[in-house]
Each structure stands twice: as structure tokens, then as C-alpha cells.
Simulated scan of single mutants.
Amino acid sequence: MAPVQQAPDRQALERWLADALGARSVTVTARSKLSGGAIQENWSLDAECDGGSHPGAQQWVLRTDAPSSISTSHGRAQEFAILEVAYQAGVSAPQPVVLCTDERVIGRPFYLMARGRGTAHARRITRDSALADFGPALAARLGEELARLHQVRPPVTGLDFLPVPQGHPAQVRIDRYRADLDVLPDPHPVLEFALNWLEAHKPVPNPVVLCHTDFRTGNYMVDDGALSAILDWEFASFSDPDEDIGWFMARCWRFGNDHLEAGGIARIEPFLEGYERISGRRVDRGVLPYWQVMAELRWAIIALQQGERCNSGTEITQELALSGIMSPEMELNILNLIEVAT
């Protein structure tokens, strides 16, 4: 069974924060577990700081390790470094506050960041009755934000832990996913077919940039129809910028709004126009189906890995069990994409 998630120790956290922020005292006035967090755990904190670098009333999110994780997820110190780079690049990421690597404080490394307004709940966003009114503008804004992130190119001070692809970025992904698939206990011929197709149809690569690598509906916050924060930087990597665009467009992240290619919130053109307005790069529309196949393949493998954790008895949860039976949906999406693209 999954380990029980316990609230961070209030007094230990207050003492550490007072010292780290140079405050006379820090009082946590409210704390609550936020929804989601299958891979990472998030706690909403309200606090009062007496002096220091963040005086007065504060609204934070404490982000730490969940009882389960996957191997491609960065640790908290690495994610904090990525968040700092994104925030300094002008991306609407939550403002990073402080990092703690001392596990004696709450039992796990953690960091604090500013708490965004609104909701990140994907189905709530894509089912909003006003989506037709705010969706295109939201998509354009998301395109602009992604373009700002993609202006960050290696080498980047503080991100030495992120490998820079040697050779074609797509081949790096193909090799990784083939290795991931090989260790799964059952055969998956559609996914093997997809890997072979991706290897045979690699597009001309773009210059490598800093990618969010999980840029999708569900990982940004919307407040009254407007973007308030881009979340979940735990998979960021250096890669081809079109990988981020293809992931955002993948059918598996449209949450039932299949006709709205931009994350289930709008058609794709407003998003691409926003992206091109900031990046100055014309996105090759003909290449995007390739990266959508890559996205569907990646999510199918992650779903199978999560299901195997449950099936093997390593961690038995309903969420992992349900994830494990999702791969046929992605396989169908892959076959449909390849049929159109060839």
C-alpha cells in the first residue's frame, strides 16, 4: 500500500524558516494538502513573518517528495534551480522563495514558492462554460510564455545537472523510450512500431533550448480565464523546442476537447501565433505531428510504468492501477497520427 502522507511538522518548519529568511519569527497560520501530486506533494501554507526577507503575511506552496516518484523526475534542489532560471527569464512561473535540503526539518527536502491564484484542474478549465470566450487569448498567452522559456539556451549557470543532447534530440528520446519499453514485462507492438517510425522520420532539428517537458493543461493555473502561473518544472530538460509544442498539442492532453488542439482550450493557431510573436521563429506545422507521436508514446510508457508498480506490488494505489490501463488510448492516437502523417 502507498505510504500515508503526513503534514510537515509545524514547529520545526517555523524554526527553520525564521532562520533561513532572517526573520525574528515565522508563524504558520494555515496549512492544507493540495490536490494532485502523484509524483510530488504540495502543501498550501499561510504564514506571518516578523521581519526578514519576506515580512508580513505570506501565501506559499511547500513542495516536497511524494511517497512515490518516477526516475525521470528531478529532485527538489534541481527543480528549484530550474524554477529560478525560468522566473528570471520572465516566464510566469511561481516566484521561488527558499530551498531546504536538510531532511531533518520535515523528513524530506522541500522548497517554498509563491502560491498562484485560480485553478490548475484540467477538466475544470476545459469544461468552463466561458472557454470559448477566454480560450484563444489564454492559448496565445501560453504560446508567449513557452517562447520566453525557449529563449534560454545552454550552457546555463546553475543547470549543469541537465544533460545537453549530443546529436539529434529526437534520437535521445527514442533511445530512452526504447530502453524503458525493453524492461517492461509484456510486449507492446504498437509502441515498438511507433519507435521505429519515429527513428525513420526524424525531422531537421532546431537549436536546443530549455524545455518545460510537461507543458500541458493541468500544469498551469487559470484565474478568471487568465493565466496566473506555470507549474510543475520537475521534468524540464534541454531539447528541441518542438517537443514542448507537440506535448501541449497531444490528444491525450485535450481532456475530451479533441477539436481544440491547443491543450483542449483553443485551436492551435492562436497558440502558435503567440509563440512566434515572442520567439521570432516560424514553427513548421508539418513537423508537429511527429512530436505529437513522440508525446503519445512517452505518456503510454509512463502509464505502463505506473501500472507495473501497482501490478508488481511495489505500490498499490487506485491511481497507479488506472494509469496502467490507459496505454491503448495512446496507441490508438499514435496509429491515427502516423496514418495521417504518412
Rank of each mutant, 00 (worst) to 15 (best):
W60Y: 08
H168P: 04
Q59G: 12
G37V: 04
Y220M: 08
W291P: 09
I334Y: 02
L337P: 03
I325F: 10
H54S: 13
T317F: 14
A137R: 14
E14Q: 12
L142S: 09
L288W: 02
S129V: 15
D242M: 13
L260A: 13
G75E: 07
A200L: 05
Y220G: 12
A81G: 01
L83A: 06
C49A: 09
A147F: 09
R104E: 05
A130W: 03
S237W: 05
R123G: 08
D244W: 05
D240K: 13
A170S: 15
G90F: 01
I174W: 05
L332D: 15
A266V: 09
S92F: 03
D284V: 09
S279T: 07
M330G: 12
G158W: 07
C211K: 07
G225R: 10
H259G: 11
V97A: 12
N257W: 01
V340F: 10
I245D: 07
E41V: 00
G225A: 06
S279A: 01
V105I: 14
D65P: 04
Q305V: 08
N206L: 15
C100E: 00
Q151H: 07
E41N: 00
T119K: 04
Q58F: 04
N206Y: 03
G218L: 02
I268L: 15
R115G: 05
L131M: 11
D128I: 10
A303M: 11
A7Q: 12
Q6F: 04
L83I: 05
P136S: 02
A200Y: 07
R267L: 13
W60F: 05
E339R: 03
V105N: 01
Q95R: 07
G158T: 09
L335F: 01
R148H: 01
D175P: 00
A341W: 14
E261N: 09
G51Q: 08
P163V: 09
P328R: 00
S327E: 11
T126Q: 13
L112Y: 07
P203I: 11
L21G: 08
Q40P: 00
H259F: 11
S228K: 03
W291D: 10
E296A: 03
G274M: 03
G90E: 03
P136D: 11
E48M: 15
P270F: 09
W233N: 06
H168I: 07
T314S: 14
V283C: 06
G307H: 11
G75N: 14
R15I: 11
L304T: 02
Q88G: 14
H212P: 06
M330H: 15
V283L: 04
P94I: 00
